[in-house]
Simulated assay, not measured.
Amino acid sequence: MVVSPSSSAQQARQALADRLAELCRDAGLTGRDLARLCGWHASKSSRIMNARTPPSADDIRAWCRATGAEDQTADLVASLRTAEGMWIDWRRMERTGLKQAQEARLPLYERTRRFRSYSPGLVPGLIQTRAYTETVLRAVQRRRVTVDDVVEAVTARMERQRVLHEGSRRFAFLMEETALRNSLGDDDMLTDQLGHLATVGSLPNVSLGIVPEQRHRSRMPVEGFWIYDAAQVNVELVSGYLTITQPSEVAMYADTFAELADMAVYGTQARALITAAMDALR
């Protein structure tokens, strides 16, 4: 399990460690006793119980056998998988290509009713055109993925966009003005994308805000993030994909989103910025 700076991931690991320590105590065993029964060094038991070293699934199975708690093995392994899933490096997430990573997020999108997205550099995926998506995912594939399934991944992301038009979902997208001019492709592709932004921004369930460039220069930079209802935040970092579920952390991102939203312009003013960016391309 890769260590994450997020307290959500830390608390999930600590909760698992505490439960394993409790099983050891309930069985009347010391860490040294458990190590002898499991066939490993005594220091390993201590590191696991103090959340300094994450256990493997096999470690948990051995632990449950030693403590007479084999009926709890499945639940504890599931807890391990949950903790592992809070921080996933890109190599692990994308080892079979980009399509699976796109499809894996669909259930989250389907159960969410309120979406909030802040994007400092690119148009958010839910409101990208097919050509823009293909350009972005092609750049990702060239940078870090050996498997080339970009065409299939694009189709998966386009399928995910149906949530924009289904049910009673609400969407709030915030972008920096610089994202209107940042393109990995040609001018025609970006022009089409900007026109699509204006169309999406007119949907009754969508709020599209753009933070003017002069306001961006007067504050600290913020990484891009998605907030799903009040339950989860996802952040794409250089090294991996972070999932945050700790309520205090989710609240911090919600507060940051509100601050950015106050700096943004909407409606006619936002469309004026989009039009200016299109005019610059012409």
Rank of each mutant, 00 (worst) to 15 (best):
R65T: 12
M1E: 03
V136M: 13
R32K: 08
R19Q: 15
R142Y: 14
A66C: 03
S183D: 08
A264R: 03
R65Y: 06
A198P: 05
Y253Q: 09
G195I: 06
R142V: 12
W226N: 14
I60S: 02
W226T: 09
T129S: 14
M158Q: 15
S56Y: 04
H196N: 06
L260H: 03
T256Q: 14
R219N: 07
Y118G: 09
A83P: 00
L34E: 04
C24R: 05
V235P: 06
R142D: 14
S207E: 14
L29Y: 01
L137W: 05
A9Y: 01
R36M: 03
V163S: 00
P5V: 06
D187L: 13
R144W: 15
L237P: 00
R142H: 11
W63Q: 03
A264Q: 04
R105C: 06
A139F: 05
E223Y: 06
V250P: 00
Y109R: 00
A258Y: 11
E213L: 15
L23A: 02
W40M: 11
A83K: 00
W40Q: 10
L106M: 07
L197D: 02
T53W: 01
S43M: 13
T146S: 13
L208G: 03
E176D: 15
D58T: 14
P247H: 02
Y241M: 02
L29T: 01
A69T: 08
E236N: 12
M252R: 07
Y228N: 04
L137F: 10
A276P: 02
L184D: 12
V211Q: 13
A104G: 04
S7Q: 06
G125C: 04
L281F: 09
A254P: 06
M175C: 13
T73C: 11
M220H: 13
A74Q: 14
T53V: 10
